[in-house]
Write a protein that binds this DNA or RNA. Sequence first.
RNA 1: GCGGGCGUAGCGUAGUGGUUAACGCGUCUGAUUGUGGCUCAGAAGAUCGUGGGUUCGAAUCCCACCGCUCGCCCCA
Length: 425
Amino acid sequence: MTTRYQAPRGTQDVLPDMQPYWAAVLEGIREVTRLHGFRRIDTPAFEYAGVFEKGSGDTTDIIEKEMYVFEDRGGEKLALTPEATPAVCRAYLEHGMASWPQPVRLYTTHAMFRYDRPQKGRYRQHHQFDCEVLGSADPLVDAEVIAVLWRLYERLGIRNVTVRLGSLDDWEPRRAYIERLKDYYRPHLEKLSEDSQRRFARNPLRLLDSKDERDQPFKEGAPKLVEQLSPAAQAHHEAVTGALAAAGIAYVIDPLLVRGLDYYNRTVFEIVPNDDERAQGTLGGGGRYDGLMELLGGPPTPGMGFGSGIERLILEMQKNGVVFEDGAMAAVYIVHRAEGAGARVFALAAELRDRGIATLIGESGKSLKAQMRGANHSGARFAVIIGEDELAAGQAVVKDLVGGGEQESVGLDRVASVVKERLDG
RNA sequence: GCGGGCGUAGCGUAGUGGUUAACGCGUCUGAUUGUGGCUCAGAAGAUCGUGGGUUCGAAUCCCACCGCUCGCCCCA
């Protein structure tokens, strides 16, 4: 492998063998979103960088160190989409969706770009299935959004996943909580890991999420936001959990759940495989973001959504033993071995295809045996053989490649209808 | 961004200083004249990730870079 033929770091080709997984995921997404009344939206591969800087929060890692930013020739500062939510919200504002019947339910599958160190399940270009419900603060919407993902995983054969649920309360009560949290940690600051000391200053909520040995003793006694929610957020939270339970969705309250984006309030959730301790195990996650529209300069508009990594879904499907049979590449394979038969063969192929029959043509000049091998590899049901004798007699041999390999001679002009009949019968 | 492991034909592997780098799968060709799958035979296919260095001699030892991978940071 020379460096000349190498996809850029953290990117990958999706080869034909993998396509059935993608097709299954995309088909599952189509069905599940239909059941929940979501409509598709596609946003551009890049946006003005400000959409994400304002929307996602410019102190988050995604924006601060992972975003692909560039200037175009006109000097505009652009960014390859690192996450979908701010882009969808931008589209909501731009197209006046506030005047559509509320709430607006949108979904997309979008390429995401993050300049990160690649690992299995973590790529610089990956794809996300993304759902957003804009214009409703109803806790049932939160539960519904979670249910979309749950149903999708179920449909894709991904078992043994758990919904981790938390609440970040609303902005003011959360700020008060963060002060209480810092008060708790302040006396122990010296004993914390370097990472956590940085978190203390920069993103205190993350203190609870630390995996460092040194930080573990303090997590237990720390105040938990989800245990002291404001009355409004508490009521909201209970409505969400009640709805999930009623729908049979297995969730656990995770008081340590923090999400990496600034705009969340109240409900946050992640879905992770039960057996996976991997750092990149999270299949999908999201939450409520009632303040995001305002950050983008729009009117107050509540929102709730998630992103779920398609590459990770496929990895998880494979882990769950989901496999796809190789499909046949064609139904008919034309084997021809006659001087000057090319045009006639090509016309026959066109006729077959006109009738909706997938057809491959053997390579001119190759031996009959080699072409028959090709027919076999193609998975075709029938070989249509045209040799010198057949061409002279205006005939073709139709050979059934499944089973014993019976063959019959048919007039060239009748081949298409005979094959059609046998395929349908 | 930080730390560890790995990198040999398309794929999976063997080979750990000494002759033309081996095997399996796959690919191609053939097994008496025009017929696939099974079997058999043969062939093609590797500048041993790239570039330097050590050595009489490097796939094998050292360094750098590239890529993958595991953990962290973070996230999907």
